[in-house]
Amino acid sequence: MRRQSVETLIAGLDAMHPERPFRVMNVCGGHERSITQAGLRSLLDKHIELIPGPGCPVCICPEEDIAQAIHLALNEQVILLSFGDMLRVPVFSHTEGPRSLLAARSQGADVRPVASPLDAVAIARANVTQQVVFFAAGFETTMAPVAAMVAEGVPDNLTVLLSGRLTWPAVAMLLSNDEQAFDALIAPGHVATIMGSDEWAFVAEQHGLPTAIAGFHGESVLAALQCLLQQRSDNRAQLVNCYPEVVKPQGNTQAQQLLREVMVVSAANWRGIGVVEDSGFTLRPEFATVNARVRFSELTDQSSFTPLAPPAGARCADVVLGRLYPDQCPLFGNECTPRHPIGPCMVSDEGACRIWMSSGMRSVDESKPTPEGV
């Protein structure tokens, strides 16, 4: 696909004036960050809506997995490692005690942020007399390097508490429940880099919705929008790759092979969403020695965690599912802020609420309808 300048792309968008609302879901938190920080919504026709979707791995990590990590950190004398965003994500249950990994650390737990699986291996090798647990939550782009780490072999004192998810099943679930949830899709470029652009063809082929793969620079996002609008104008639906310099139809086959060798896919719980079929990564039985849920067998007993309903007014699940914009949650910017997050969407750099607050965006244009159209 030929690269165009930002000026050319914006001019092309200006020439397109949809006569009715055109709701485009951008799945990835990285896309939402690019869109919001660049102020792209302010450049678009009032009928074009850009709806944040369920592409924040921290936001959808189930509370029971975080509770397991907190339990290990407090009760098993382990070094608990996690990607930085996860440390501040709150959980709500009837169980007394710290509500986040950061709170557990304040009570004496050895909780440390890491940036990659290589960091986890290095910490385990530097602390051979201690058990080290790597709480690995994320989508395909995170799971691929975790799979590579496990396949290469890890120190005997390192185990993995896995909370991995595939992205496309959540979008498929949204469309199976309501084919009118959105009118077009910007699919995540980083996931497609691993899994291939062809994985997203079902949106166009099965649901008749224009679909584009986009990268994270302004030109790629704008090119995807222009492509989607053109499809709408032509009354057609197909998958177009607007990130061809990185994304290939079949993706990274070596990374996919590692995922298949190390992990299996099964039904999995998504925070605020529920169980999504064929959406969760778990370690294969042959890697049981690396599985924290096997080494610390009490984690298999889920009865100790009883989730509470979200705090009154919290609409995290609706924001994740694209049913509400962040500012339409009554807690946004009031009780819930980046300094004092009520829900996960205000914690992660990929959470829509955090992105909007950090970018100074407090409300969407009131002339545009809500994602629900109400």
Results as ranks from 00 to 15, higher is better:
I123H: 04
L259E: 08
P285S: 02
S5W: 09
W270L: 07
G280L: 03
C336S: 13
G189F: 00
T211H: 05
V150G: 09
A201Q: 15
E261K: 09
M263C: 12
M361E: 15
G153S: 11
S363A: 15
M263P: 03
A214Y: 00
L283C: 04
E372T: 15
V171Y: 06
W270F: 10
I35N: 03
A192D: 07
S279D: 06
N177K: 15
R362E: 14
I186R: 11
Q37H: 14
G274I: 09
S163A: 12
F135T: 00
V347A: 05
V264R: 06
G84M: 02
A126R: 10
Q226E: 08
W168A: 13
G208Q: 01
S93F: 02
V24L: 12
A124C: 13
E372Y: 11
V154I: 15
M16C: 09
R125K: 15
S297I: 11
N269W: 07
V111E: 08
I186F: 11
S266Y: 02
E245I: 05
R260M: 08
V374H: 14
I66L: 12
Q254K: 13
F332P: 12
P57L: 00
H94R: 14
V264G: 01
M143V: 00
V203I: 13
R41T: 11
P311G: 00
Q250H: 10
A292I: 01
M16E: 11
R323E: 15
P155E: 10
Q226C: 02
I60G: 09
G272K: 09
E32W: 15
L118D: 12
N157P: 05
P249T: 06
A288T: 04
I35V: 07
G108S: 09
F135H: 00
Q107V: 00
T8W: 03
T370E: 09
P90G: 03
L175M: 06
T211P: 06
P18R: 05
F202I: 13
L13P: 05
F332A: 11
M346G: 04
V294D: 13
E76V: 05
N75V: 04
P117R: 10
Q107E: 06
G360W: 02
T141M: 08
Q180K: 13
A67W: 11
R236M: 11
R236A: 03
S82N: 01
R88W: 09
H190P: 14
A181W: 05
V247N: 03
A124W: 03
A170H: 02
F83P: 00
K46V: 10
I60D: 05
L81T: 01
N241L: 04
P169Q: 04
A147E: 09
E64T: 12
A103L: 13
R3Y: 06
Q206C: 07
A192W: 06
P113G: 01
D65H: 00
F216R: 01
S5V: 03
L40M: 15
A184T: 08
R232C: 10
R125V: 04
H17S: 11
V89S: 07
A317H: 12
